[in-house]
Write a protein that binds this DNA or RNA. Structure first.
Length: 751
DNA sequence: ATTCGGACGGCC
DNA sequence: GCCGTCCGAATT
């Protein structure tokens, strides 16, 4: 009220001299704002539905703003804008223009169009929404992963309508690109998928061979897959590349099939090294002007420049590391991922999407073909095959036998039986020395794959093999780098305390042995055994080599850093397999197989003398898979084992990490999906303690006690689980229960 | 009667 | 998350 006595408040409204339509109560006829400050709404479609850059789970929806006439032209769908939100100015994207709003209250004005560049197409927005939902995350978080930061100068370099290369059909296919069917919620991707007529079982009508891509003809379904690409039939394939395969070229050829038919293509690889190789192949097959290589380490300007070229339709093939799964390729006909078992395909930022699953969702939404490729097959890819959502593209056994090296397994027992003096003295058994000797004699390089980096990183009891653990914090003991003459005492890798008087708690032996031996010592050992031979080291601290010449050399490499050898390696030695397989992780076997095959695939075929020696018991399935070169069978066995144990991907899981109170708070408001069909749809496992020092997102300080709960549901309930978790997280966030709980769906390693 | 502050709801 | 509002308790 004003200075007047309050008793007559209501009558005051009736007093003469008031404005016709006064704002309620407070009515001093204050000096009017001048007219030029007023904003008028755009004549039509004056409502903009905006995705605001606010990652609060309970605010994960669009908000409507009034478009002023001045911004009518520039506030296009997909444009970056600035709006007032909760009293602050925030960034956002226009998702839609509409005539009306569902919002009852007054709409705020769209403050500013940062740029009229339509960076967030409806297709990309829909994909991000789907990914957010699948991972129980927010759209804002996914948009930050999918759309790189703007670089204004780059945007100005080339006007949007003027591609530097003639871009045929620039306008038409863009508009013709919209998603096929909006996926009904319950029959989405392979959880519940129905088989489709993706790749015909017979070879294509044209015959078994495409003269332009003879490389794919080695695989019985290969040519049919390329034909399906050319016809945009939405083929889904799981491809196991043969040893020695020029996979990069095959992928480039697949992209050419899609692009030749007027569509786009996306290919995702694990790292920069693979990207460089793929880029060279794509330029070779398709020419420079079609290819955009997207990598996170380019720097903001170059990153945005290339991304923009894709978004504007100037480049139809986007290749890159995991974020490229979102690359705004128009009308994609092919979506491919190479080596989907590599853990760098998993995004480390919330909501932790995996590139393979992003592409899967995208294939579903757009009707594009999906190609999940690798030398080996993951259990996840096996699910696609087994549900008949995807067809396997694999070579016949005879072809495999002709291309694969000969594999010999040497177990610990074998070593002792052989009474091999070298074997007892060193980690490298005599059979391996012999294979290496032969290869070097044939003037071929020898690949020596050593796990992890460093020098004796982990140790165990020499008598009973019990892993040596810190007496203080139970972290793993390791031996820091030192010299052979003056060895350092074992030291905890978590807390850093040395323990010079270690005794095994199980058997009291003071003696220790290495369980994982780094490349340094192996290099020394082999160097001594072949004194006249050059030793090259790749990875594990040393620079990574891309390739090595066809000349005698010992090439010591860590997994993922194996150089390609010109003409192939004469032999490969895979050391310390037992230690790899013995790890407790869910993916220990799968990962070991993946590393072994990656190295062995670089070796010459058996008929040309190529040999692989793997130090591991020959009876274990992983070794069998390598000996028989049957990665698909191993994936099948792996999936069977996980089905038996109720582990992903046979089931869907969510990991919930947080301090005990926060976890309880979340579980209290979590309504787990339950269809009431007898068996329980969801199980909560745990909580278990997480290792000390586990960082939680948003946790300012190190949480004292971090625990993990696992929620397990049948695959068909995966979406419902994500929805339930998203709702629970939203409830908590609306209540300002802000203690961090990290929700990870399909965690790489739930154990 | 007036001021201050913490809780809570809404955010277009 | 942050702002604004509302209400109760402390303060004048």
């Amino acid at each position: 009220m004003t200075g007047r006595a309050g008793t007559g408040g209501h009558e005051a409204l009736a007093l003469p001299g008031m404005p016709e339509d006064p704002p309620p109560a407070k009515a001093p006829p204050a000096p009017k704002r001048p007219k030029h400050n007023e904003r008028l709404p755009a004549p039509s479609r004056s409502v903009a539905k905006v995705a605001v850059d606010v990652s609060l789970p309970h605010l994960d929806r669009t908000f409507d703003y009034r478009v002023p006439v001045q911004l009518d032209e520039s506030a296009v769908v997909g444009a970056r804008v600035r709006v007032r939100f909760a009293g602050r100015t925030v960034d956002g994207f226009v998702l839609e223009r509409a005539d009306t709003s569902d919002h009852d209250g007054r709409l705020g004005w769209l403050d500013k169009v940062v740029s009229p560049e339509p960076v967030l197409s409806p297709e990309l927005a829909a994909l991000c929404r789907t990914v957010a939902d699948r991972y129980a995350g927010t759209l804002a978080d996914v948009l930050r992963l999918a759309v790189p930061p703007r670089h204004a100068r780059v945007e100005q370099e080339t006007p949007p309508g003027r591609p530097d290369q003639p871009a045929p059909d620039e306008a038409a296919p863009d508009e013709a690109a919209p998603p096929a069917e909006p996926a009904p919620d319950d029959e989405a991707v392979p959880d519940e998928a129905v088989p489709d007529e993706a790749v015909p079982d017979e070879a294509a009508p044209a015959g078994g061979t495409r003269d332009d891509d003879p490389g794919w003809s080695v695989y019985p379904r290969g040519p049919a897959f390329l034909d399906a690409l050319a016809r945009r039939q939405g083929a889904h394939a799981v491809w196991q590349a043969l040893p020695g395969e020029d996979w990069a070229r095959r992928l480039a050829e697949a992209a050419r099939a899609a692009i030749g038919a007027g569509h786009g293509a996306v290919i995702v690889v694990p790292d920069r090294r693979d990207l460089d190789r793929l880029h060279a192949a794509c330029v070779d097959v398709l020419g420079e002007h079609e290819v955009a290589a997207l990598a996170a380490d380019l720097g903001p300007a170059e990153r945005y420049r290339r991304w923009l070229a894709v978004a504007r339709g100037h480049k139809r093939l986007a290749i890159g590391t995991r974020a490229a799964a979102f690359a705004p390729v128009h009308d994609p006909g092919l979506l491919a991922i190479w080596d989907d078992g590599d853990d760098s395909h998993a995004e480390p930022r919330a909501p932790y999407p995996h590139a393979r699953d992003v592409l899967l969702d995208r294939a579903h939404a757009t009707g594009a073909a999906l190609l999940v490729a690798g030398t080996t097959r993951t259990a996840e890819a096996e699910v696609l095959v087994r549900t008949r959502w995807a067809h396997p593209v694999v070579a016949e056994r005879a072809t495999v036998r002709a291309r694969a090296p000969r594999v010999t397994a040497i177990g610990e027992d074998d070593r002792q039986l052989l009474r091999d003096p070298t074997a007892r003295a060193a980690r490298v058994p005599g059979v391996a020395f012999e294979a290496a000797r032969q290869a070097l004699a044939a003037h071929r390089p020898v690949l020596v794959q050593v796990p992890r980096r460093g020098y004796l990183p982990a140790v165990a009891c020499a008598r009973c093999r019990e892993p040596a653990r810190c007496r203080h914090c139970h972290g793993p003991l390791g031996i820091p780098a030192g010299t052979e003459d003056t060895p350092s005492p074992p030291t905890c890798r978590w807390c850093g305390r040395p323990d010079p008087t270690y005794r095994c708690p199980a058997c009291a032996s003071p003696r220790l042995r290495a369980t994982v031996v780094g490349s340094g010592r192996t290099s020394e050992e082999l160097g001594r055994a072949f004194p006249q031979t050059v030793v090259r080291t790749s990875g594990g601290g040393a620079p990574i080599l891309d390739d090595v010449p066809a000349a005698p050399a010992l090439v010591v490499a860590t997994p993922g850093a194996e150089p390609v050898a010109e003409g192939g390696y004469g032999a490969a030695l895979l050391l310390d397999g037992a230690a790899l397989l013995a790890r407790p992780e869910l993916r220990a076997a799968e990962e070991t197989v993946r590393r072994w095959f990656a190295a062995a695939a670089l070796v010459r075929p058996a008929p040309d003398g190529g040999r692989v020696v793997v130090v591991a018991e020959s009876g274990v399935p992983a070794v069998q898979a390598l000996v028989r070169w049957d990665p698909a069978a191993h994936a099948g066995a792996e999936l069977d084992a996980r089905t038996e144990l109720g582990l992903p991907p046979a089931v869907r899981m969510a990991a919930l990490d947080g301090d005990p109170d926060a976890l309880h708070g979340l579980l209290d408001v979590l309504h787990l999906p339950d269809t009431g069909e007898g068996e329980p749809d969801a199980e909560v496992l745990g909580p278990v303690e997480l290792p000390p020092g586990t960082r939680l997102p948003g946790g300012d300080e190190r949480t004292e006690r971090a625990e993990r709960c696992l929620v397990r549901v049948p695959r068909r309930a995966g979406r419902a689980l994500a929805a339930a978790l998203a709702a629970a997280v939203a409830t908590r966030s609306a209540r300002r229960d802000t203690d961090p709980v990290r929700v990870v769906l399909d965690p790489a390693d739930p154990l």
